[in-house]
Design a protein around this nucleic acid. Sequence first.
DNA 1: TTGAAAGCGTTACCAG
DNA 2: CTGGTAACGCTTTCAA
Lengths: 344, 344
Amino acid sequence: MKRPTQADVAQLANVSRATVSYVVNNLHNNQVSDETRKRVLQAIETLGYQPDAMAQSLRLGTTNTIGLLIPDMDNPHYWHIAKGVEKETQSEDYDLLLISASLDPHRELHGVRALSRRRVDGLILILSFVDPQGSEVRQLLKQKKPLVVTNARVPEPDVDSVVINDLDGTLEAMNHLIALGHRRIGFVYGVAHQGLGSQRLEGYQQALRQIGQEADKSLIINCGTTLQDGYEGAKHLLNQSPRPTALMVINDLLAMGALRAAADLGLRVPQDVSISSFDDINLALFTNPRLTTVSVNASALGQSAARMIFNRLYDPHLPMQSVHIESRLIIRDSTGQAPVTPSS
Amino acid sequence: MKRPTQADVAQLANVSRATVSYVVNNLHNNQVSDETRKRVLQAIETLGYQPDAMAQSLRLGTTNTIGLLIPDMDNPHYWHIAKGVEKETQSEDYDLLLISASLDPHRELHGVRALSRRRVDGLILILSFVDPQGSEVRQLLKQKKPLVVTNARVPEPDVDSVVINDLDGTLEAMNHLIALGHRRIGFVYGVAHQGLGSQRLEGYQQALRQIGQEADKSLIINCGTTLQDGYEGAKHLLNQSPRPTALMVINDLLAMGALRAAADLGLRVPQDVSISSFDDINLALFTNPRLTTVSVNASALGQSAARMIFNRLYDPHLPMQSVHIESRLIIRDSTGQAPVTPSS
DNA sequence: TTGAAAGCGTTACCAG
DNA sequence: CTGGTAACGCTTTCAA
């Protein structure tokens, strides 16, 4: 059974296709008599007619869709961002086309391309690999489509962006640990590729330098991005001797793995080892112990990004913007005084 | 700067629009000479031409998009399902249009409608409120679009569906608890609306009946679906006296809240109270203690659903199917012997 | 108050 | 091998 078109409705109601369009869209400049309107509505009802969004898009040049490219679907952090985006799109009655790069450079590029082919009305790119200065992204800009990028290495001058100020939060967290007496601090650096989250690493090293430490390579473990990776990375670090008394973990997800690793090694958190991380996903408040973490408010990030899209949609001449999302340390129960007798 | 169309390319390359189409789509029944092909490719390159997906969709009647309606974006369970769907769509080179019902009946209905207007090539509906027998869904069926529903109250006869066999898993979990000596078992029933997850509740009650217990209303707490709800629900139950010695929690997310609640009440899990739940989200393996849970493999669920969509897409005459996802108990560390001296 | 028709950017059929 | 052209289903201007 073919789906009914405007023409079918028109025929059944004995009017022209145009008239159907008028009643469907409640055109007020073009009044339709109550009588015909009723007939048309009736026909629509019996046929179960729904306007075809594709045809509308083609005609109007608009899709009512926002495209969102995220690096990975396995990390709650990105879910939170997506959630924020969705919240905003929902309230504007836009739909969400979600593409995950699956932490793969090829797929990421593919995603950018797919999104641009699809004529989404705006897109939000959370980039890990693709260069925002590269030709792919430039293409998009030329089309004058609202575009927001993030995770960009630098705030780009000629594209809207939302940048996370990781550095301050990281320094705050490190100073917190240092103030608690920690001197041997490990870093679980689980990222999809080198350079990502570099600000967090940078903050870690910078804080150490301030207390006269040179970054000790062996205290930085470079691992993957899954829970299991976090678990193993932390375990590796905690098995060193002398054992680090504190761990900075690149994100909460991995930190949950780290928590588990500590437990499995019979180490109490925070008595034996302190753990601090990033993101403040909502789970961080419910772990055992609750996580001390640098709060990034991913959902707000997503929402801001979406907000920027709509703002530009409604007023294309807006100057380029760069929204900064501040991070701040949330001290909970996973960090405490450094143990007085550092385990040899 | 307007985006270039086929016509622009044709003009620049001095060929007809048709020819451009031929080289773009690599038509082999209609050979293009190497010379012209090169010219066209060149033009495409300099113009940065990309076929317009909307126009293609209109023409081909196909969108290369699978629509997915999930109940909520705050629950990792649905992310896992989405992840499974995405995995499959990705390998088929389809995109994913994601709509969240936000646990709201209106939005859910709205979502179903949006998806159907959008001419997605197939859709997966995880329904909480909308009746799969209702007119909305029937409409969709008439259009002969591949459609998979789940969370349906009953396996529907004339629509593809994937149903989770919750009952067996629940009974398994309950029997596990009973075998450990638990007799006073609470149930944290955090659902968006009554009737949802009823199989889990049913299994709980059935198992109790088998040991001659009538369901004690006060042991069933009806709460919301957030972590916080799980936390509070569990706390409420654990504050009763006599205190339940075990808790069944409707899903892992809420169980993480419950774990936290137990910790905050100074109760050790599993020594003082056992906690068991459902879903087996990947975090369940990393909580402290690790969760005993009825594994549902949400990702597989999503993948199966997507698989069914594609199967039907490729062969529309396939008989209606209903894939059953089995559940089974995974025993970890959050359940143990009932305390010998039940706290009065 | 209603209708005819142009056009959005494609693809695919049929001629040349 | 290449080009003309008719759809696809809709909105919107212009006329009646």
